[in-house]
Amino acid sequence: MKIALHGKVFNKEVEPYIKKVLDFLLAADAELRISNLSINSFIDTFPECEKCSSFDKITSSDDVDFLISLGGDGTLLEAVSMVGNAEIPILGINTGRLGFLATTPKEKIEQALTDLLNRNYKIDARTLIKMESNRPIFQDIDFALNEFGILKTDSSSMITVHTYVDGDYLNSYWADGLIVATPTGSTGYSLSCGGPIVLPHSNNFIITPVSAHNLNVRPLIVSDQSEITFKIESRSNKFLVSLDSKSESVDNDVKLTVRKEDFQAKLVTFSYSNYFDTLRQKLNWGLDLRN
């Protein structure tokens, strides 16, 4: 069995859990591959990784069975970009903080890995959002699991985002920016800007303004079959385009469109955890001193 690993921060608190993952997989005779972004950290901390091969991206020809993300949600988002259209199943082990996507806690590592090797799991297929532009911005990683964003630069005034849905004019958002989130991303940046929580398989996108100048402008849910197009105006002639944790500065001449990606992100889930459990735990729903 071939298993890819990706993780970035190995502090003293996290090291024992990473060690537990490595020991378990090596004892199971798994062939390990480690991402180029983390190979040095693995080798410096765990000498048994010196013979492991590395990878930049995973393709279907690599015959990798799973990718295990060791960290928080940001680490898992990077793992999604490494897998791309190969659609290799990703297991997120949360050694970070929030863990909305990396839902397997450190305390259940052995149980999760046992279930993984015994094929006792389910695949949760998540929609990705694809960005198209008239010039290359993010090379070939032009998709995101959480959200696409158009944002003002740090020192600029507000921007105007003229927005069209399937060619029909929707609105001109005078704001600090605009987010188009997937249902998965509805609990991320969109939520912090007042967007709704949308269940993962709702087949929607959420259009959420960032600090809109007009208070009566509200988030809007549209079908994920829609094609959303933007024209941007800014006094500085510059603005930021983001896909999850990636961002680039571009000018007003860039033409941008987003739609549903043709492939999906395949997340590994287990019977002892579900989406509603995650909502209650991570958002502290029902947490009351009176209880």
Rank of each mutant, 00 (worst) to 15 (best):
K2H: 06
D251G: 11
N171S: 09
I232S: 05
P183N: 14
K57H: 13
Y275H: 15
K152M: 06
S223M: 08
E147Y: 03
F239A: 03
R280Q: 15
G92Q: 09
L267K: 02
G286H: 00
D176W: 03
K282V: 09
G71M: 08
Y121A: 03
M131D: 01
R126E: 06
N11D: 13
S155V: 14
R97Q: 09
K282D: 07
T59A: 13
K282T: 01
D176T: 04
T229Y: 03
T75R: 08
E132D: 09
P16N: 00
I206W: 05
V83G: 04
D65P: 06
S245M: 11
L67C: 01
G72Y: 05
V222P: 10
G7Q: 04
P47D: 07
R290L: 01
I221P: 07
D166T: 04
Y173N: 07
D44R: 15
S249C: 15
A102E: 05
N120W: 10
R218N: 09
N252F: 01
S211L: 13
T257D: 00
F143M: 08
S271W: 09
D277A: 03
T59K: 13
V83R: 05
I221E: 11
P183Y: 11
I150S: 09
D115E: 15
G96C: 07
L199Q: 13
T114F: 05
V250K: 05
N120S: 14
L98Y: 02
L267D: 06
G7D: 00
N203G: 05
N120A: 14
G84E: 04
V268P: 05
N291Q: 12
K12T: 13
L26G: 03
L5S: 01
V64S: 13
Y173D: 09
S155M: 14
M158C: 02
D244I: 04
E248S: 10
A212T: 11
K2T: 00
V217N: 10
L128A: 02
T104I: 15
S155E: 13
S133K: 01
A125T: 13
L70R: 01
D262P: 05
T160E: 15
C49R: 02
D244P: 00
S271L: 09
L32W: 09
P47R: 06
C52F: 12
K231T: 14
N237T: 04
L101P: 03
T160C: 11
T95L: 15
C49S: 05
G74R: 08
V165Y: 08
L37W: 12
D115V: 03
K260N: 07
Q281S: 15
D288G: 08
L98I: 08
T257P: 04
E78F: 13
K238G: 02
S38L: 06
E87K: 07
